[in-house]
Simulated scan of single mutants.
Amino acid sequence: MVKLVLLHKAESIYEDELDVAYDFPRAYLKAVTEAVGDWIIYYEPVKAGPRGYFATAKIERIIAKPGVEGRYLALIERGSYLAFDREVPRLRNGCPLETALADQAGNPLKGGAVQLAVRRISEGDFARIIDLGLPEDLERIEATRYDPQPSEMQGEAMVFQRPVLERLTRRKYRDVAFSRKVRDAYGYRCAMSGLQLRNGGGRPEVQAAHIRPVERDGSDSVRNGLALSGTLHWMFDRGLISVADDNETILISKNKVPGDVVGRLIRPDGKLLRPEDPRHQPHPENLRWHRENVFGQVLSGESSPWGVT
Rank of each mutant, 00 (worst) to 15 (best):
E77W: 03
R291F: 05
G201R: 08
I129A: 00
L195T: 01
I250E: 00
S303G: 13
A10Q: 12
V257D: 13
V88F: 15
A64R: 03
I76G: 00
L251T: 13
K58L: 00
A227E: 04
A209P: 01
L138W: 06
R203M: 03
I63T: 15
G49T: 11
G307L: 02
K110M: 04
Y22F: 10
R78H: 02
V36I: 10
R71F: 12
I250D: 03
L132H: 02
A57S: 10
I59S: 01
L134S: 04
E152F: 13
L226H: 06
V5Q: 12
T249L: 12
D16E: 09
I76Q: 02
L109N: 13
A10G: 02
K47N: 11
Q154W: 02
E44N: 10
H233N: 12
S304G: 05
D245T: 08
F54W: 13
G202T: 04
P50W: 09
A21L: 09
G201H: 08
P213A: 08
W289P: 00
V262A: 06
K3D: 13
G111E: 14
G49R: 02
M235F: 15
V159M: 03
R189T: 15
E166M: 02
H283K: 06
G94L: 11
F84E: 09
W289Q: 07
D246E: 02
W39H: 13
L299W: 13
R71H: 15
G296Q: 05
P258H: 10
L299Y: 14
D103T: 13
G230N: 08
A31I: 09
R162F: 13
E139C: 10
V182H: 10
F84Y: 07
A191G: 14
S80M: 06
K9D: 15
P135M: 07
D175H: 01
V298N: 03
N293C: 07
C95D: 03
L272N: 04
G230K: 10
L91M: 05
Q281A: 09
G202Y: 10
V294I: 13
R51N: 10
A113C: 01
S300H: 08
F236T: 11
I129G: 00
Q297D: 04
I129S: 00
I130Q: 00
W289N: 07
D245I: 01
D125P: 01
R86V: 15
S300P: 03
T309L: 15
V68L: 11
Q154F: 01
R120P: 01
P275Q: 05
D16R: 03
M1A: 09
G133F: 04
V294M: 14
L299C: 06
L73V: 04
N93H: 10
N247R: 00
L165F: 11
P50S: 14
R216L: 14
E142M: 12
W289F: 06
R183M: 14
E15G: 09
L7T: 14
L75R: 07
R212G: 05
A208D: 08
G263F: 08
E15V: 07
H210Q: 07
V5L: 11
S219Y: 09
L272T: 02
L97H: 02
P89W: 04
G133T: 06
P204I: 05
V118M: 07
F126E: 07
L97Q: 06
R78K: 15
E285R: 10
S151A: 14
A31D: 14
